[in-house]
Simulated scan of single mutants.
Amino acid sequence: MSSMGRAGKVRVERRLMTARHGARLLDRKQHILADELERLQLRAELARTEWEELAREAALWLRRAAALDGSARIEEAAPLEPAGLQLRWGSTMGVAYPEDPECQLPAAPAAGGSSALSYAAAVHRSALEAGVRYAADQRAEMLLTAELAATRTRQRAVENRWIPRLENELLNIRRQLDAQELEESLRLRWAADRNSGNTAGPALGAARKGAS
């Protein structure tokens, strides 16, 4: 039996073991990502609902404030500094995504105008915070969706292409080794039979000479 054949068999068996282990890991990763994605999708849907409701309410009170106070008073009520954002990052199976963002709102100017204007300003601040949470959830959902799709693609490639190819390669090697074993066994048997015949020939001739 060829030593190269044996070495090739061991090498392919190890690669096949690695491929099967990799497929199991990818399957586990896929399930974990799918569970986390489901959680994020639910959270994003709740954030979207909250943001849309607050945005509608803010638009309603802005129209009321405009009717009562005018555009000049609305401009005076706007903060002088822009809002800031601090992101925290979560991670699932090596995928980093934004989580629980903190919207840093600037100080509101001194109150002035009608109560409608004050309430409109407060609702706009709440709507901004809700919008930031929804945007972060959307981004997290997009990142996990992309990684889940890539994981499924890799798993299908391993299970449908890599593993079958290695299994076929291993099967061919085993067939070749079996054929070599059979050939070697037949050759040894033939050699043994030939040696047995050569030994019996001189012995038989000596026996015949003694008898005569």
Rank of each mutant, 00 (worst) to 15 (best):
I32L: 14
D100Y: 14
A127H: 12
C103F: 06
A116F: 05
V12E: 03
R152N: 07
Y134W: 07
Y134M: 09
A200F: 00
R88P: 07
T153I: 04
R20H: 13
E183P: 02
K209R: 14
A116Y: 03
L186G: 00
A19K: 09
Q41N: 12
A96T: 08
K29A: 13
W89H: 09
A200Q: 07
P98M: 07
L62I: 01
I32M: 15
P106R: 07
T151E: 11
A72T: 11
V95N: 02
Y119S: 07
G8R: 13
R39G: 11
P101M: 00
Q30L: 13
T199E: 02
L143E: 02
L182F: 08
Q86I: 09
R6T: 01
S71E: 14
N160D: 05
H31P: 03
G201A: 10
L188G: 13
S115L: 15
L166A: 08
S114A: 05
G112D: 03
N160C: 12
P79C: 03
L143W: 01
Q155V: 01
T145W: 03
E36D: 14
I74T: 05
A140I: 01
V123N: 04
A7Q: 15
G22S: 14
K29Y: 13
N195S: 00
D193W: 11
P106L: 05
A111S: 13
G8D: 10
A127L: 03
R189F: 03
A149T: 05
L80F: 07
D27R: 05
E184Q: 06
W89F: 15
E169D: 07
R165A: 14
L46E: 15
E159N: 05
E183K: 05
R187L: 12
A66T: 07
V12Q: 01
A179I: 00
E147R: 10
P82I: 08
P79A: 02
P79F: 11
R6P: 04
A149Y: 10
E147F: 05
P202M: 06
G131A: 12
A23F: 09
L80C: 10
E36Q: 12
G210T: 05
S185T: 01
A140G: 05
S118R: 14
L54H: 06
A150L: 13
D137L: 10
V158S: 06
N195A: 09
A78I: 10
S3R: 11
V12A: 12
A211N: 04
E50M: 09
V158G: 01
T151L: 00
A59R: 11
E129N: 00
I74F: 11
A211P: 04
A7L: 12
